[in-house]
Computed example of a mutant assay.
Amino acid sequence: MKLIRTGAEWNPLWLNHLQKKQQIGLVPTMGALHDGHLDLVIKSKATADLTVVSIFVNPTQFNNPEDFAKYPITLEADLQKLADERVDYVFLPSVETMYPAPTRLRFDFGDLERKLEGKFRPGHFNGVGVVVSKLFHLIRPQVAFFGQKDLQQVGIIKRLVNDLSFELKLEIVPTRREPDGLAMSSRNMRLSPIERKKAILLFTSLEKAKTELFAGKNWLEIQTQIKADFGNEPFANLEYFELVNPETFESYSQFDRYQKSFICVASYIGDTRLIDN
């Protein structure tokens, strides 16, 4: 496993692999790796000839400076996990490498970025769009891997790839869960033991809503009950619980079992914000 820190280091390596007609897979991460990240790595290794994992905590996608400051950094453990998976390259750029000057360019993803995550995290998706574009330009992969847990981010990146004609394929990997159902997330590291127990509310609420929808119950009634469930939990502070179109993220007021839909949830547990779908 080789560590690279700049585009200049990567360029001759990339050219060598290009000449050999080897396909490059990219797994973009912010570190604090868990088994969900490793699922992306495993998928990349099964799909591409070479796998590059980037680790970069991107400051421009944090609308809350405190959230950025508290983001867990576990680089030594991350590198060991990636070495164990026999990753080919790890890209470890500095902030100065990724942002040699302040980025003046701004992305506007239209209505897609003004709902759900975009509404509660203004500027977040602009930061995602900028950093993912930079990674695509620097690494030049033929395929990139993202997790379904960040569902709206996946929608943003699909639009980015289509609108800017990036010549790569996106692979979306299912969410990895803990044995009790909690979606794996680097942010879970910030939960206290009691908060970790309470965090299961996100998953159980999704499961409850899904079951009741298929049993024929009205969506708005379900939504009202779920909001009450969160309201009765002092550790939780619900931001949204919505039934949405997975392409436009338009919220539905009623459920159609023949129409593709996702239920998306975001809630603070203590002072840690978690999402699931």
Rank of each mutant, 00 (worst) to 15 (best):
His137Pro: 00
His137Asn: 15
His137Leu: 03
Leu138Glu: 00
Ile139Glu: 01
Ile139Val: 15
Arg140Gln: 14
Arg140Phe: 00
Arg140Tyr: 00
Pro141Val: 08
Pro141Trp: 04
Gln142Leu: 00
Val143Ile: 10
Ala144Ile: 01
Phe145Val: 12
Phe145Trp: 05
Gly147Trp: 05
Gln148Asp: 05
Gln148Ser: 08
Gln148Trp: 00
Lys149Ala: 13
Lys149Thr: 10
Lys149Gly: 10
Asp150Asn: 07
Asp150Gln: 05
Asp150Val: 04
Gln152Ile: 12
Gln152Ser: 10
Gln153Gly: 14
Val154Phe: 01
Val154Ser: 03
Gly155Met: 02
Gly155Val: 07
Ile156Ser: 09
Ile156Asp: 10
Ile157Lys: 05
Lys158Met: 01
Lys158Val: 00
Arg159Phe: 11
Val161Thr: 13
Asn162Ile: 07
Asn162Cys: 04
Asp163Lys: 12
Asp163Trp: 09
Leu164Val: 08
Leu164Lys: 04
Phe166Arg: 09
Phe166His: 09
Phe166Asp: 13
Phe166Gln: 11
Glu167Arg: 10
Leu168Gln: 06
Lys169Ile: 11
Lys169Met: 04
Leu170Met: 15
Glu171Gln: 11
Glu171Gly: 02
Pro174Trp: 02
Thr175Cys: 13
Arg176Ile: 15
Arg176Asn: 11
Arg176Thr: 15
Arg177Asp: 08
Glu178Trp: 10
Glu178Tyr: 11
Glu178Gly: 11
Glu178Gln: 14
Asp180Thr: 07
Ala183Lys: 13
Ala183His: 12
Met184Val: 09
Ser185Leu: 13
Ser185Ala: 15
